[in-house]
Nucleic acid binder design. Sequence first.
DNA 1: ATGACACAGAAACTGTGA
Length: 265
Amino acid sequence: MRLATWNVNSLRARVDRVVDYLVREDIDVLAMQEIKCTPAQVPLAAFAEAGYEVAAHGLNQWNGVAIASRRGIADVETSFAGQPAFGKPGQDAVVEARALGATCGGVRVWSLYVPNGRGLDDPHYAYKLEFLRALREAARGWADGTTVLVGDFNVAPLPTDIWDESDPSAATHVSPESRAAFAALAEAGFTELSRRELPAERTYTFWDYTQLRFPRNEGMRIDFAWGSPAVAQRLTALSVDRDERKGKGASDHVPVVLTLAEVEP
DNA sequence: ATGACACAGAAACTGTGA
């Protein structure tokens, strides 16, 4: 099975590129983040013509997560137990569209969009840390299954995962608290699968649209795949599809794709 | 060349992203 994760930065703006990618790269399951639309607005026909079903969760133009699969898509959940809510002061807090679980081809897939954090003194930062803490607690109950947690974690775990650790726009991605909250997912029994498969230096999954960040390869590695032991055992390959950042109409993130050995039925 | 922000929704700008 080939399973990918991709922050698409608007599914409606990117659907042609996304479906082209699925077909060209022979992807079975794609977890998407930042679809920026409601389920009713998802361009289902383009996926269906290519043989994919889609489950989506989106409340408005912000955030939004989805999974496309040609291996079936069952038991959809639109949040995890304990997932925190967020709201501006004076507004009701809402559990945002940042997690979608579904079972595809025998693998429990969670498409995750961890809050950015915005700034170290912003309430959004506490929300980010709480989201990662709650995810860790929920994940303890998933570790004995065939489960992957994939998506945009908005954390650059190591100094080598960012072109410049002093970039002020990435303060919430490199803070000790964010890095500790990310690393603590291992306490739930999961393993981050990309680390041993990718070169350590300057292997990024995101490049800002501005300031020639992509041609200069000034990016961040913030999209990851955590696997339960059953998934980690089946991993045969993992790569970053850097070419998807090229050209007009690209997302600012690229896909991370995993190949899992098939199990005998 | 891999190239100089993009998206959505509301309203001709603002919020958000990282």
